[in-house]
Design a protein around this nucleic acid. Structure first.
Lengths: 408, 408
DNA sequence: CAAGGTTTGTGATCCTTTCGTCGAAATCTG
DNA sequence: CAGATTTCGACGAAAGGATCACAAACCTTG
C-alpha cells in the first residue's frame, strides 16, 4: 500500500539524514572541502553545516583542520577532511585472468592493494573464494581499519539482490551463490554487494575517472567477452533484479557466428578478443600478449592485423550506433581490450557510428578510452560498498564498522 | 559546486513539499483514498495527514466526503477524493495518421477528447500547429477548467529541454521547434513539455495500463516506424537531452535493407508495417487497412500472410532478445501494430526471444499487448503534464493554473 | 438495546532541525 | 593601522511532524 515506495512520508529526521549524507558524499567524492565550500555546495546555512560537520567529526569520520589561508580576504574557513581510516571498505574483483582485493578508505584513498594473476582457465569457485578470503584477511590485518562494506566485482551476470552469479561464461560459472559464499567465508559484519565488473567499471569512471560530472555514460569493456555498464540520468542502469547491461549479447548479425551464450551473431562474436586475434592470424586464445602482437604488427603495417582491427572497429561502431540510439549517452568509454585498441580503430568506429546513430543523439556523444585501467572494477566495487555509509552516515555513528568479529 | 545536484541541502519546508507531493501523487494515481489509507501509505501520523489533506482541500484540489462505512469495526475514515476540475492538463498527440487533443483532470479522468484522422501524408507543420490550437481552444472553452500543464506526444525524436523535434521521419519533419511554436500559439501560462510518442506511451501503460506496479518496462510501438520507450527502475529512460529509446534503429541486420534514417538493417526494416505488408504481397503503404487484410488472410490460412507474420515475429524476437539483455525489463508491452499482431506472432517471437536473451533476464520477462490502444501517447502526455503539479502541489496553491489569459 | 472493543479524528504540546541575526574573530587591502 | 570582507559561534525563532490524551463513530456481543 505504498504511495511510491521511495516517496514515503518524510520527517524532520529525514532531513538531517539527507543533509548528513550530502556532506559525507561531497567529501568522499571531492576530497577535503572547507566549511564554507560545504555551505556553498549544499545551500545550507553556516549554522547547519557547523552542526552537521560537528556530528561527523565527533563520530570520527572527518577531521577539522586549522584554516588554510588562501589569499582571499575574510576569515578563513577550516578545512573538513574525510578521515581515510575512520571507515574503509573491502573491494574484491574476479576477472578472467586475475583476482584482486583492496581496502579503500573514506574519501576514496586506496590503502591496501593486491592483485594475483591467474592462468586463464576455468576458475574453480572454491579456490577463488578461498584465495580471496586469504587476501582479504591479510589486507585487513595490515590496514587494521573498520570495514563498513564489502563490494565484489565479477565478470559475469549477477543478480544484485543476493549476489548470485547466474552465469559467468569466461569463468565457467553457472548459478554460483557468490554473495552468500563470500559473506560466510569473510565473516565481515557489514553489507556485502556483488555486481558485474562492467557495472562497477562505469561507476568507477563516473566517480573517479573519465566520466566525472557526466550523467549519461556508456562503458564498454572488452576482454574475452564484451561487458557493458551504463549510467543513465546519473544513476546506474540496473534492470530488474539488478541484472542488466549485457550489451555483449546484442544481436548485430543474426546469421553470424555462434556465441558462447548459445545464440548466434551476438556483438561479442564480432568485437571480442578472440575475433581480433583470429582475424589477425593468431590463436583466438592468445590472450593479452596476442593483442600486443597484433598492435605491433599493425604499427609495422601488417595488412592482416590492420584488417582485423578495421573489422573490430567497424563492428564496434555498428553496435555502439544502436546503443547510442537506445540510451543516448553523452560519453562512451572504452575499457579493457577496446580501450587499448582505441587509437587503431577510432576511424573505422567513428565512420560506422556516424552512419548508424541518429543525427541528434550522435551529435551529443563522444568516445574516449578508459582512464582507470584494470583497476576500474575494483574502484567501482569500493564505491558501491561505500553506498550504505554515504546514504546514511548517522546509522554508522554507534558501531565503528566491523573490526575483527565473525560472530553475531 | 553542487554536491550532487539533487542531493542539495534539505530544509523543513522540503519535508512538507515531499509529503504533500506523495499525497497528491497517491490520489492522482490510485484514485480516492481514505485518510487512514493515506496514513498507511505514507507512514505519517494522522495529525500530519490531517494537516496536509486540509491544505490540499482548502486549495481546492481535493474534497473530503463523509465516511463510507465498510463493515469493519472502528470509526470510518472520510474519503479524500481528487477533484478532477480543480486542476487539468491539456494533452496533445501528433501521430502519423491522426492528431488528437484531450483535457484530463486531476485523478486521471479524461474530461474532453477529440481525435482527427488525417491522410498519411507529410504533415505540414503549420497546419498541424494551427489545427491543434483550434482543437485545444475548443476543448478548453468546453471544459472551462484551469490548465496546470500541457503535454505533447509526437512521433519523432524529441529534445525534452525545449521541445525541438529534431527528426520525425514519418511526418517529414526536421528540426521543428514544436515546443516553442505550440507554446506561442496556445498562449497557456503553464509548463509545456514535448515528448516522443513511445516515451509517453510507456508512461501511460506504467501509470494506467498493463504495467501498473512494474518498475522495469519496455514498450515497443510499431506503426510506420518502430518506436520505443522504457521505464527503468521506476523512472523513464531518457538519455542525454531527453532523447532516447529510439529502439527502431537498433542495427540487427547490418547488411539488410535501407532504412529511412539513412542506415541499413535497422530493426525497423525487419519489423515495421511496410515489411509486413510487402511480404504479405500488399502495397507497403496500405496502412492500417492493409494490416487488417493480412490478419484476415492469416486467419484464412493464407501461406504468404502467415510467412510475413512469421518473419516479423522472428525479428521481433531477435530485437527484443537484445534489448532484454541490455535493459532487463520485467515486462515488454507491444503497442500499435505489434499489439494487434501479437496473437499471430507470439510463438515465433517467443522462440527467438528464448534463443537470444540470456537465461537469467529471460526468465524474468513477459511479453503482453498494450491495453490503452491508440490513446496511450495521449494519456502519457497528460501524465507528464501533471508532473509539475504532483512534484510540488504547494507551488500551485495561489494561482489556480492558467485560465484564459495569454498575457504575461 | 446497552456495553465493550476498535479505529479514527481532533487538539494541545513536545521534539527535531534548520533559519536568521547578532557580535566577535581572522584575514587581506590600502 | 583602519577598513572591508568573510567566517565563526551562539542565541532565539520558525516550521513541521510526533506524541499523547480524549472524543467520536462504528462493529460485535450478550
Amino acid at each position: 500500500m505504498l504511495v511510491d515506495g521511495s516517496d514515503i512520508g518524510q520527517r524532520s529526521e529525514t532531513v538531517r539524514r539527507a543533509n548528513l549524507s550530502a556532506i559525507a558524499r561531497g567529501l568522499h567524492e571531492r576530497g577535503p572541502l572547507s566549511r564554507s565550500d560545504l555551505v556553498a555546495a549544499t545551500g545550507l546555512t553556516r549554522s547547519a553545516i557547523r552542526s552537521l560537520v560537528g556530528e561527523l567529526a565527533s563520530a570520527g569520520f572527518v577531521t577539522e583542520e586549522g584554516a588554510v589561508r588562501l589569499g582571499t580576504p575574510g576569515r578563513p574557513s577550516p578545512l573538513v577532511r574525510p578521515d581515510p581510516v575512520s571507515a574503509t571498505v573491502l573491494a574484491l574483483e574476479i576477472l578472467v585472468d586475475s583476482i584482486a582485493a583492496s581496502i579503500v578508505g573514506f574519501g576514496g584513498v586506496q590503502l591496501e592493494h593486491v592483485r594475483q594473476d591467474r592462468p586463464r582457465l576455468q576458475l574453480n569457485v572454491d579456490d577463488v573464494v578461498a584465495d580471496l578470503a586469504t587476501m582479504a584477511a591479510d589486507l585487513r590485518a595490515r590496514a587494521g581499519t573498520p570495514i563498513v562494506g564489502v563490494g565484489v566485482a565479477v565478470a559475469g551476470v549477477v543478480r544484485r539482490s543476493d549476489g548470485l552469479v547466474s552465469m559467468g561464461p569466461n569463468l565457467g560459472w553457472v548459478d554460483v551463490p557468490l554473495g552468500a559464499r563470500l559473506d560466510r567465508v569473510l565473516g565481515i559484519r557489514a553489507p556485502l554487494v556483488v555486481t558485474n565488473d562492467a557495472d562497477a567499471g562505469v561507476l568507477a569512471e563516473h566517480r573517479r575517472g573519465a566520466a566525472e560530472g557526466t550523467d549519461d555514460v556508456l562503458f564498454v569493456s572488452g576482454e574475452v567477452g564484451v561487458g557493458g555498464g551504463a549510467i543513465v540520468g546519473g544513476r546506474p542502469l540496473t534492470g530488474a533484479a539488478g541484472y542488466g547491461g549485457e550489451i555483449g549479447h546484442l544481436p548485430v548479425n543474426p546469421d553470424g557466428a555462434a556465441c558462447r551464450c548459445g545464440a548466434t551473431g551476438c556483438w561479442e562474436t564480432e568485437v571480442g578478443e578472440g575475433v581480433l586475434l583470429a582475424r589477425a592470424g593468431l590463436a583466438p586464445d592468445a590472450g593479452s600478449a596476442g593483442v600486443d602482437a597484433v598492435l605491433r604488427a599493425a604499427d609495422a603495417g601488417d595488412e592482416q592485423a590492420l584488417a582485423a582491427l578495421a573489422h573490430v572497429g567497424r563492428w564496434l561502431g555498428i553496435g555502439l550506433g544502436g546503443l547510442v540510439n537506445v540510451l543516448t549517452p553523452r560519453l562512451i568509454i572504452l575499457g579493457g581490450l577496446h580501450g587499448r585498441i582505441h587509437p587503431y580503430v577510432r576511424d573505422a568506429l567513428q565512420a560506422e557510428l556516424g552512419r548508424r546513430a541518429l543525427p541528434a543523439p550522435r551529435a551529443l556523444v563522444s568516445v574516449v578510452p578508459a582512464t582507470l585501467g584494470d583497476d576500474a572494477p575494483l574502484v567501482g566495487a569500493a564505491e558501491l560498498a561505500f553506498e550504505p555509509l554515504l546514504a546514511d552516515p548517522a546509522a554508522w555513528f554507534g558501531r565503528r564498522g566491523a573490526m575483527h568479529l565473525a560472530s553475531a
